[in-house]
């Protein structure tokens, strides 16, 4: 295996994307609205496509603003449809995001003659190509560094999410645990909800190029779900989820390079491998987590019987 600077960037971008997603994912998981992440990651597509067709640039500011709007709209539409359409929230989410996603797909296919945004990239991303788009060339300690645009954007989004989670930790905690009490106390649960939804939308867009709209769901949910099995403290869950996200990004790229070669194939999709790694870590934790793992529980049970 050979390691190039491009590999370093792929890992850095993957880790930033996974970490930024995991931060928010904790609150999606705890609010039992993981599927909202799924819905939003798909629903932002038409916003993205329109912004892209209009400005012709990826990851532009207008794209992020568009995404945030569509993210909030998805949440609002979902609530409206479930209230007025006499369907449960899951079904109404299914209606909203599939419709929006389909609309986005149509826009992209129609505009494909003019723009380089193809449907498969939308679904799986193209993390291997992101390091090629260099926008900043600083010299650090005598080294000449080529910083890709995706890395810069993701640093920004990861920072934004960190600030959000740290600044509103108390509000996020109470509105996720007991939204009614929070509202009764004057802590605006609905505002927190929509802030979270818009950040999920912005994060999804930032991660789009790197991981696409399907793998991003794994990054939102899996590290947070894994961390939930490992601790009883909210802040530690958040920290652990980010660590797990980073580890799956690193292992994902390494195994994408190494594993297929072992079986005589060319190397494979890094973002796919990252999600697979996250899934493997989750499975390991489900089995072996000290307190909530299946096996330790079984052991405790048999000991108790004895």
């Amino acid at each position: 295996m050979e390691w190039y600077s491009i590999d370093t960037w792929i890992v850095v971008i993957g880790a930033l994307a996974a970490g930024a997603c995991a931060l928010l994912g904790n609150f999606l998981v705890l609010r039992k609205m993981s599927m909202m992440g799924d819905a939003i990651s798909h629903a932002v597509l038409p916003g993205l496509a329109i912004a892209f067709l209009v400005t012709g640039a990826r990851a532009s500011l207008s794209m992020f603003i568009g995404a945030a709007i569509v993210g909030v709209l998805t949440a609002v539409f979902t609530q409206w449809i479930s209230r007025f359409g006499k369907v449960d929230e899951g079904a109404s989410m299914g209606i909203v995001f599939t419709t929006l996603f389909a609309l986005g797909l149509l826009l992209i296919v129609q505009g494909a003659d003019h723009v380089d945004l193809d449907p498969s990239c939308v679904l799986y991303g193209a993390i291997e190509l992101t390091p090629l788009d260099v926008v900043w060339r600083p010299t650090l300690f005598g080294y000449f560094i080529e910083v890709p645009r995706a890395a810069l954007v993701l640093v920004g989004v990861a920072l934004l999410n960190t600030v959000f989670v740290v600044a509103f930790f108390k509000e996020l905690r109470i509105s996720s645990f007991d939204a009614e009490l929070a509202t009764a106390m004057g802590i605006h649960s609905k505002l927190m909800h929509y802030l979270l939804m818009s950040l999920v939308a912005v994060t999804t867009v930032a991660c789009f190029e790197a991981v696409g709209s399907i793998i991003v769901i794994a990054m939102l949910i899996v590290p947070a779900a894994t961390a939930h099995l490992l601790t009883d403290r909210l802040w530690l869950m958040v920290v652990l989820s980010v660590l797990i996200a980073i580890v799956s990004a690193v292992l994902g790229h390494l195994s994408a390079l190494i594993l297929p070669a072992c079986f005589g194939f060319a190397d494979t999709s890094t973002s796919g491998m990252m999600a697979v790694m996250a899934g493997l870590i989750f499975s390991t934790v489900v089995l072996f987590a000290p307190k909530y793992g299946v096996l330790p529980r079984l052991v405790r049970k048999t000991e108790a019987v004895r």
């Binding site: 705890l30 039992k32 108390k170 509000e171 905690r173 109470i174 996720s176 645990f177 007991d178 009614e180 009490l181 929070a182 106390m185 004057g186 802590i187 939930h228 601790t231 009883d232 403290r233 909210l234 530690l236 869950m237």
Partner: peptide
């Protein structure tokens, strides 16, 4: 009305009572 699997301790839950005035 709440999820008791939420990662908080009893003390954390009680402290939430002070959030409104914070």
């Amino acid at each position: 009305s709440v999820d008791w699997d939420f990662p908080v301790s009893a003390l954390d839950v009680v402290a939430m009572g002070t959030y409104g005035k914070l």
